[in-house]
């Protein structure tokens, strides 16, 4: 079998808050292959962001293994994690997280700058990426001169520009109205259609259903993992729970 791109093996993440320990991720295991479009869903506090931080190499598991493209991320130092984030991952955040003082072009250039791409090539690639998301005419604008939807498109361009293995979107439509949400989702679908692996994190079932596959979390455990169009994917399978009892 082909090596999975993302593989969680009994991943646990616990936070110690004074006397109490919170199990934000509890023995999570799954595999995501190349070219999949997966939505990770769950209620608030179910552990979505925890998973996303681990997948995004912003954090490492307390126990268990996370293999990204076969490499064990848990054993990497900070510099290696930074390099992995730079080369393998493209982030799309809920709050866009663009740098307000830089132009759109410069914002999109950032991942390439840290990758050590030469100035000219960097500019060219950033320009192409912005053109792809339909903002080729606004290269010199500042983020605050754009609508929310447009800003999110810039952040998609920024995520794509380094040609990463995984596009990781955390509530990408959380701050948008329903019409622009659809636009952004369509854009993510296009990104997927172009052959990219997309992991979408959301609490919203209707958005999750845009993906091919859903991984549902509850209290830090996976309670559903399968086709996004199965009825169980959206109906909360409490009785048939595969775990997650308190």
């Amino acid at each position: 079998m082909e090596q999975a791109l993302i593989e969680f093996q009994n991943v646990c993440k616990t936070y110690v808050m004074g006397d109490a320990t919170v199990r934000a991720a509890d023995q999570i295991s799954f595999q995501i292959g190349r070219g999949e479009f997966v939505a990770i869903v769950g209620k608030s506090g179910s552990g979505k962001s925890t998973c996303m931080n681990i997948i995004g190499c912003l954090d490492i598991p307390t126990s268990g293994n996370y293999l990204l493209n076969g490499h064990n991320v848990g054993q990497m130092n900070k510099n290696e994690l930074a390099a992995i984030r730079n080369k393998m991952l493209g982030f799309v955040f809920q709050q866009y997280n663009l740098l307000p003082k830089l132009s759109l072009l410069e914002n999109v250039e950032i991942p390439l700058m840290y990758a050590g791409v030469a100035r000219e090539e960097r500019k060219q690639r950033a320009k192409t990426a912005l053109e792809q998301v339909g903002l080729g005419d606004k290269l010199r604008n500042r983020p605050n001169q754009l609508s929310g939807g447009q800003q999110q498109r810039v952040s998609i361009a920024r995520a794509l520009v380094g040609r990463p293995a995984v596009i990781l979107a955390d509530e990408p439509t959380g701050a948008l109205d329903s019409r622009t949400s659809r636009e952004v989702l369509q854009m993510l679908k296009d990104v997927h259609a172009a052959g990219n692996t997309v992991v979408l994190i959301t609490h919203d079932n209707s958005i999750a259903m845009q993906a091919q596959r859903i991984i549902r979390l509850e209290d830090g455990c996976v309670v559903y993992d399968g086709d996004a169009h199965e009825p169980e994917a959206v109906v909360q399978p409490r009785a048939a729970g595969t775990g997650g009892n308190p």
Binding site: K78, A82, N86, P111
Partner: peptide, 16 residues
């Protein structure tokens, strides 16, 4: 702080 967080997420090493 937020700028630093964004830069780090996008792959800035500590020394950068």
């Amino acid at each position: 702080t937020q700028e630093i967080g964004i830069r780090k997420a996008l792959g800035a090493k500590e020394r950068y």
